[in-house]
Design a protein around this nucleic acid. Structure first.
Length: 683
DNA sequence: ATAGGGTTAG
């Protein structure tokens, strides 16, 4: 059209700009922008709105490829967002050891010095929300590394500056103009600037509409600020917008991210109409809050409502299968995923890798991982954690190294996986090197998970005092759960004195911790301190604390079977029992001597043997053996730690029946084959 | 010309 000499009118440019947006062609868009200015259409409302939309889309596209955009997690659920590295600001010390960075935090009045930044050199900027602080770049720079800043600097803000410039030179602005800018800021993580625009919009006598609200709500979801989120909800109700489909799903998501799933459900229940996204918001909301059954229930209801699951639905629901270790469900979903051609999606593939690993099939997990075209940090982390979970520490470590070679930068979760691998294999030196490198070179602040992995490792390796010191010197308050890992190590290494000290720590914050009582009782029994063991049992009974019976599950032909010691309700109980007796006889002939030390002393020795032998995992294994004569792998899911005697017993069983037996306890899978376990005697 | 939901963590 231009070549033929016809002059474009103001209707042309919005379409052309939309094309450059969809073609992801920034340079073309910029030349169209030049053309607009040259022809004098830069005062046209629609054209300007389209221009801003284009620049904002490029900005969010850039942000979605930039992992560091979310910034740094600091304690208490807060995050520091690194916005950009400022050039041209004189370094205070002049020794090249610091860099000025623009940051903000979702916690007001943050003392950045606490998080490894030097004191603020400029204070807040004119927005009142961004802070210019100095980042020491020496070895002491624990919280940000230069790489993340440099990457951030390349694209961050540049396109949003263009949006702002267009916005400022507009003669008139309508709701769409404001909404476009607000969405742009919100999706680029410049939350405070987005909120500031909402306030200014009110000053310009424009009322936020459904577009505004559904763009602003995700900010409060990210901030985990349910108070502000509720204010928006209230405003939506007053405007009669609370049943809007878009606002509805952002409300569901906001409440769920603030752990108030009941409110999510209420909002969902009041929606007059539901599409795939509203369904997915409620499903994801349940799953993210650990309500797996509820999530599955909604997933089924969605299918019944004839809403076709979208690819997002699968990555939302898969973690439910992973956590509940329902392999048959996961497999069914996998089938659906393949039939719909969703299997090339990174989110879905990663969730499948995780699901198969958690359900005990690391080979399939690896197979899916190897078939993926692109590996991102999450898929790497899933497969590393999978190998760690199965005790294949060396594979996990070599995968971690491969990840780094391919230029994928580890984040704090990836380090949890690496440290967990080390912990399960007793690789102390390797673990320390990861831990130190993480804090020094990656700027990651160790969280509870990292500390737990290291403490667990030290404990398992018998370095009990060192573990005690390590936990005591953490920069965050130790929780009952991290002390529990040490208590359990005290049981393994039979250290009564330390066990008492550790249990004391646990009871200080959680006097009703049943697990801790049981562990301590076991320690006393193993040390023949019967009186103490009994005293503790009586104390527990007086407090009304009951031991939850150990339970094991096994999946045979798509059906889950549960076994608990002393529970005779399974239809095949008698046959299972018989099989177990035959097994015990053969085991004893092979040299198995039951370790009855931790069983209560007031039981006859012969009876102790049987109490031990009718442990839930052995019932499940016996059932697995008689139900699958074809010799396939037996996979048992157990809800407690596999104790020392179980470990020995299952080794014998695997040798006698010549089968691979995989047993999962709370923390990992043990692979038994030919009388050996993948984790050796190091359990 | 503008809007909402997803994968990894003892």
């Amino acid at each position: 059209m231009m070549a033929s000499g016809v002059h474009p009118d103001h209707n042309v440019f919005p379409s052309v700009l939309k094309s450059s947006t969809l073609l992801v062609d920034l340079r073309f868009g910029e030349s169209v922008h030049a053309c607009i200015v040259r022809l004098g259409f830069h005062l046209d409302l629609y054209t300007n709105n389209a221009l801003m939309n284009m620049y904002a889309k490029f900005q969010s596209l850039y942000m979605s490829t930039c992992d560091e955009f979310y910034g740094l997690e600091v304690s208490g659920g807060h995050k520091i967002y690194v916005h950009e590295v400022l050039d041209g600001i004189p370094e205070r010390n002049g020794d090249g050891q610091s860099k000025s960075v623009l940051v903000s935090c979702n916690e007001p009045n943050t003392d950045y010095r606490k998080h490894g930044f030097e004191e603020s050199v400029l204070g807040s900027d004119d927005n009142g929300n961004l802070h210019c602080v100095e980042l020491p770049c020496s070895d002491g720079a624990r919280h940000v590394n230069e790489g993340s800043c440099a990457k951030t600097n390349n694209g961050r803000r540049l396109q949003m500056d263009s949006v702002r410039k267009v916005f400022e030179q507009m003669p008139t602005r309508d709701l769409v103009s404001w909404n476009t800018v607000i969405v742009g800021f919100a999706r680029s993580g410049l939350f405070e600037e987005a909120l500031k625009m909402v306030r200014e919009m009110g000053n310009a006598n424009l009322k936020p509409d459904s577009f505004t609200l559904s763009s602003v709500l995700p900010i409060f979801a990210e901030y985990v600020d349910v108070i502000k989120g509720k204010e928006i909800h209230g405003y939506a109700i007053r405007q009669g917008l609370d049943t809007d489909l878009f606002i509805g799903s952002s409300l569901i998501d906001m409440y769920a991210k603030c752990t108030q799933v009941e409110d999510s459900q209420r909002v969902f229940g009041l929606l007059p109409r539901r599409d795939g996204i509203s369904w997915n918001s409620i499903i994801a909301g349940c799953v993210q809050n650990g309500m797996f059954d509820e999530g599955l229930k909604f997933f089924r209801q969605m299918l019944l409502a004839k809403i076709k699951p979208r690819h997002v639905s699968f990555s939302s629901i898969m973690p439910a299968c992973a956590h509940m270790t329902t392999l048959h469900l996961g497999k069914q979903l996998h089938g659906y995923i393949i039939r719909n051609g969703y299997d090339d999606n990174v989110f879905i593939a990663s969730s499948l890798v995780d699901m198969y690993a958690k359900c005990g099939n690391i080979r399939l997990a690896r197979c899916i991982f190897d078939k993926m075209e692109l590996h991102d940090m999450v898929s790497w982390t899933s497969i590393i954690m999978g190998h760690a979970l199965h005790g294949y520490a060396l594979d996990a470590i070599s995968l971690f190294e491969q990840m780094e070679e391919e230029g994928v930068k580890a984040n704090s979760v990836a380090f949890v996986a690496a440290l967990t691998a080390c912990s399960h294999a007793g690789l102390i030196d390797k673990a320390w090197s990861y831990f130190n490198s993480m804090t020094r070179n990656y700027g990651i602040v160790p969280g509870l998970e990292h500390y737990t992995a290291v403490a667990d490792l030290l404990g398992r390796a018998g370095k009990l005092e060192e573990a005690y010191e390590f936990i005591s010197s953490m920069h965050i308050r130790p929780t009952g759960s991290i002390w529990s890992t040490l208590l359990s190590a005290c049981r393994v290494h039979k250290n009564v004195e330390l066990a008492e000290r550790v249990a004391e720590k646990i009871f200080m914050t959680d006097p009703d911790n049943t697990g801790a009582y049981i562990l301590l009782t076991n320690v006393y029994s193993a040390a023949h301190r019967w009186k103490d063991a009994v005293r503790l049992r009586i104390h527990m009974r007086n407090k009304g604390l009951k031991k939850t019976p150990a339970c094991s599950w096994i999946e045979i032909k798509n059906k889950v079977h549960a076994f608990a010691a002393g529970d005779e309700s399974h239809p095949c109980y008698n046959k299972t029992n018989e099989a177990l007796n035959v097994l015990l006889e053969r085991m004893e002939r092979e040299g198995y001597v039951p370790d009855t030390k931790e069983v209560l002393h007031d039981v006859e020795e012969e009876q102790k043997k049987y109490l031990l032998h009718y442990h839930s995992e052995r019932l499940a294994i016996a059932f697995g053996i008689i139900s699958t004569p074809d010799g396939t792998t037996i996979r048992v899911i157990k809800n407690l730690r596999v104790c020392g005697d179980c470990h020995t017993a299952i080794k014998f069983i695997s040798k006698i029946v010549h089968r691979e037996i995989i047993v999962r306890d709370n923390s990992r899978f043990h692979h038994f084959k030919n009388g050996k376990c993948s984790c050796g005697d190091y359990w």
